[in-house]
């Protein structure tokens, strides 16, 4: 989670939400959260499990360029 918040602090174009899965069942349903952590980028890109910085940044670039 901290990594996503770091990216948000380093770029005005990035925002990052922690979402406590059990409190928002409509979202876990919508994004079909099976296991945590799950990172969803711009509604379309999904990354399951802990993500290394380089991979997360690659996906962020894919979504934001």
């Amino acid at each position: 989670m901290v990594l996503a918040h770091k990216l948000a602090l380093a770029s005005d174009l990035v925002s990052a939400d922690m979402v406590e899965a059990t409190e928002f069942p409509h979202l876990t349903n919508r994004y079909q959260v099976q296991a945590v952590p799950l990172t969803v980028i711009n509604e379309t890109i999904r990354i399951e499990g802990a993500v290394p910085e380089s991979l997360l940044v690659e996906k962020v670039l894919e979504a934001g360029t």
Binding site: M1, A4, L7, A8, A10, S11, L13, V14, S15, A16, D17, M18, V19, E20, A21, L27, T28, Y31, V33, V36, P37, L38, T39, V40, I41, N42, E43, V57, E58, V60, L61, A63, G64, T65
Partner: peptide, 15 residues
């Protein structure tokens, strides 16, 4: 890499 962003990126991390 972040300096190359041109569009907003929204990350949601489910925990």
């Amino acid at each position: 890499a972040l300096a190359r962003l041109t569009k907003p990126v929204h990350l949601q991390v489910f925990v």
